[in-house]
Computed example of a mutant assay.
Amino acid sequence: MAYERLSEFTAPARAAPDLWRIGAVLGLMFVVVMMLQQLVFILLAALGGQDAVRAVFEAEGTSPGQTLAALFSHGLFAVALAIALRAVHWRGFLSLFGAGAHAAGDFFRVIYWLVPLYVAAIAVLPTEYDIIRNEAMATNRWMLYLPLALAAVAVQAGTEEVFFRGYLTQQIAAGTRAGNWAWMAVPAILFALLHWTASAGDNAIWFVLWAFAFGLAAADLTARAGNLGPALALHIVNNAVALLGVAVPGPVAGLALYHTPFGADAGLIPGLMPVEFALLFVAWLAARVAIRG
């Protein structure tokens, strides 16, 4: 009964439920993304030369502009998904969100609960280290960047949600027998593997396990609500805190107000993970209460 709205959410996928179509979508997305990236490169080179291309897309760049570019670049995958969805399944991009009015309402209800929760967690939870101010982000500069930074986080997190909890969940649920939990497990596993970071060394497994738990929580919220709103809210709030508040130094930490004094491969990461899992669990419960009300 908890997932009675899952059938409503997956209804658009049942017109073309064949699982082979997922592979076709992935292949077409790859081609479209390559084409879009080349188009972006050409436009940047035409407007600002090769220096502009390197400044925006340098692999290890950590400036605010490079971080914005990295986050907004996920939008290319969203565009590719929209094109592939129309070509392979003959349906529109908005069908990935569930009922529009319900999705928007659930999104803002969950945001209303989660923002105070994360703010309280940052203020109350003790830390074993002193955070470091990001020298590239004075407070007034951070505030000026904030609207654009939030939009970039929304694009990045939203793209992941429409693919993993939107497209994959819908297609796997529609293409497998009733009661099969592959619609929850498979996207969560793939989402977790996407978060494998070689630079994290032995800590990479912790980030993968956390991402798997997040994937399960987001799938649960999606199935309970019958739309993508709650999972979108959870993902955006979580990533906004992690990327714009206190970030681990790295390629996408340029917009953060503060940095941790250690990298992703630090030995104290495993000791911090129980708190991260606990916060995710509480956020998941809060989101469930929000959509129940």
Rank of each mutant, 00 (worst) to 15 (best):
Thr169Ile: 03
Phe207Ser: 03
Ala154Ile: 04
Ala204Cys: 12
Ala149Thr: 10
Leu243Gln: 00
Ile172Thr: 14
Leu125Val: 00
Val186Ala: 07
Thr197Phe: 13
Glu128Phe: 14
Thr176Ser: 02
Tyr145Trp: 15
Ala253Phe: 06
Val248Tyr: 06
Thr159Arg: 11
Ala240His: 07
Gly201Lys: 01
Ala178Asp: 01
Arg165Glu: 10
Leu209Gln: 06
Val155Ala: 13
Pro187Ser: 06
Trp196Phe: 15
Leu148Arg: 01
Trp181Gly: 14
Val124Ile: 15
Leu221Lys: 12
Trp196Gln: 10
Leu168Gln: 03
Pro230His: 09
Arg133Ser: 10
Ala217Trp: 06
Asn134Tyr: 05
Leu194Glu: 12
Leu194Asp: 09
Ala151Thr: 14
Thr159Gln: 12
Ala174Gln: 14
Ala138Leu: 14
Ala192Glu: 07
Leu216Ser: 11
Leu234Pro: 04
Gly245Met: 14
Ile131Leu: 14
Met137Ile: 13
Gly201Asn: 01
Leu150Arg: 14
Tyr129Arg: 02
Arg224Cys: 07
Ala138Gln: 14
Ala242Trp: 01
Ala173Trp: 07
Val153His: 08
Ala185His: 09
Ala253Val: 04
Leu146Cys: 03
Gly158Tyr: 05
Ala213Asp: 02
Ala138Asn: 10
Ala253Glu: 03
Val186Leu: 10
Leu125Glu: 11
Phe207Val: 04
Leu148Ile: 15
Pro230Glu: 07
Pro126Glu: 14
Phe191Met: 10
Leu243Val: 01
Leu234Tyr: 08
Ala242Ile: 00
Ala157Thr: 08
Ala231Glu: 05
